[in-house]
Amino acid sequence: MPEISLPSLLPGAGVTHNCVMPADDKTRLRRHHDMGGLDAGPVERSEHDYAPWEKCVDAILRLLSGPKRGVLQIDELRRGIEDLGPGAYDELSYYERWIAAISNLLIEKGVISIDELGRKMAEVEARHEAERAKGGKA
């Protein structure tokens, strides 16, 4: 088993505070997610049907943040997403950011470990590839 490194699995892993704060004027510094009032193009009226895996990410968050479990809070998720850094914030899709941040938070809180996550990901991928091979798709 090769050694699993956190950054190879997850952007922003281990980052406690991302300090890239471009100044938009002389008096105010802001982080990349804090975009209220900035210039931007027209609002593209795009919509899409949420994919099953995206709804699963949403469901995982609801279960973890609900009053019954309280494993993590919504504001912690937001901080986790902000800590992915400006590159990941713009390059990942919405639910990719969510699951990356949720994973980082679960590791940070000791709910799961990076080693078991890496092993489970390898197992999930191998299982899926075996299913594809059976179906003649691989």
């Binding site: 699995l9 997850l10 099953p52 895996w53 699963c56 990410v57 995982i60 279960l63 973890l64 479990r69 494993v71 990942l92 899709s93 639910y95 990719e96 699951i99 990356a100 949720i102 994973s103 679960l106 709910v111 799961i112 078991e116 996550l117 489970k120 990901m121 197992e123 999930v124 991928e125 899926h128 590839e129 299913e131 594809r132 179906g135 798709k137």
Partner: peptide, 27 residues
């Protein structure tokens, strides 16, 4: 069909996180 395409990195991550949380009895 979900078997048709390779999973993306983040789809794998989602499935792995869900399975671990279920195995650990979080939900």
């Amino acid at each position: 069909d979900v078997e048709d395409a390779p999973l993306t990195h983040y789809q794998i991550l989602q499935l792995a996180v869900a399975e671990l949380l279920i195995e650990k009895g979080v939900f």
